[in-house]
């Protein structure tokens, strides 16, 4: 839950007084043009940034009182770029479990994200962009988060690969029961995913409600303009 949250990055205010109640939500899409503050919001939730103002709570507890590594494990994050580590696919997947001293079925996770098991010992950087994104998802899932933050999961993918990633995200929700918070500027992603949708513009929350309603009958003029492709994108976040 976010209360009046502001955030600054590189000297610029990227979030301005965002309040959002995400309790009891299983799937939430954060929509908005580039530079709206969507990725910055995810960074706050994973604890990679600190809010300059306001409060964020998780399961009724202010996040500043939760040990940061525990928070990051609970609220996993998949970045827009895969950022895989040097080494094999297996080493990438086992990175988190090794830190947390847990055993995990790396092959099983690879299958779960829709990749053939024979890729497991391949150098991670040799895979295609789409495959790397799946590995980065498997890597995040390996620490068994309760919430998964997904930053533009379909960016830089062709329509087929993007469709497969969305199918995978839906299966994660259904099979693993992980709550999902996905940032996207692609409206189609939200249509497929359903759940709730929040619209950000210039760091402010302009709308929040069921995705179907937000997409079909937006209550905000800014949302309407965004859906019509009428909003100027600011610099990349």
């Amino acid at each position: 839950m976010l209360e009046d949250v502001c955030s600054r990055r590189v000297g610029r205010e990227v979030l301005r007084g965002v309040s959002l109640d995400l309790r009891n939500e299983e799937v939430v899409s954060i929509l908005g043009p580039s530079g709206a503050g969507k990725s910055s919001l995810l960074r706050l939730l994973n604890g990679l940034d600190e809010p300059s103002q306001g409060h964020i709570s998780y399961q009724g507890q202010d996040v500043s009182s939760i040990p940061i590594r525990d928070l990051r494990r609970e609220v996993g994050m998949v970045f827009q770029l895969p950022y895989l580590f040097d080494g094999s696919v297996r080493e990438n997947i086992l990175f988190g479990p090794t830190i947390w001293r847990r055993s995990v079925d790396a092959e099983g996770l690879l299958k779960k994200v829709g990749l053939p098991v024979d890729l497991i010992d391949r150098p991670a950087h040799q895979l295609s962009v789409g495959q790397q994104k799946r590995v980065s998802m498997a890597r995040s899932l390996a620490v068994e988060p309760h919430v998964l933050l997904l930053d533009e999961p379909t960016a830089n993918l062709d329509a087929t690969a993007a469709g497969r990633i969305l199918d995978l995200i839906l299966s994660l929700r259904d099979e693993l029961g992980v709550a999902l918070l996905m940032v996207s500027h692609v409206i189609h992603d939200t249509e497929i995913l359903g759940g709730m949708a929040a619209v950000l513009h210039e760091g402010r929350l302009v709308e929040f409600g069921p995705a179907e309603r937000v997409l079909k009958e937006p209550s905000s003029e800014i949302t309407r303009r965004f859906l019509d492709g009428d909003l100027d994108s600011r610099e990349e976040e």
């Binding site: 590594r69 950022y83 990175f95 830190i99």
Partner: peptide
């Protein structure tokens, strides 16, 4: 920066994140 933050996001300590 991206790889280091990806490691932190998985719960790694800063020392572990910059180890390579």
């Amino acid at each position: 920066r991206g790889e280091i933050e990806a490691a932190l996001a998985l719960g790694a300590s800063p020392q572990r994140a910059i180890q390579p």
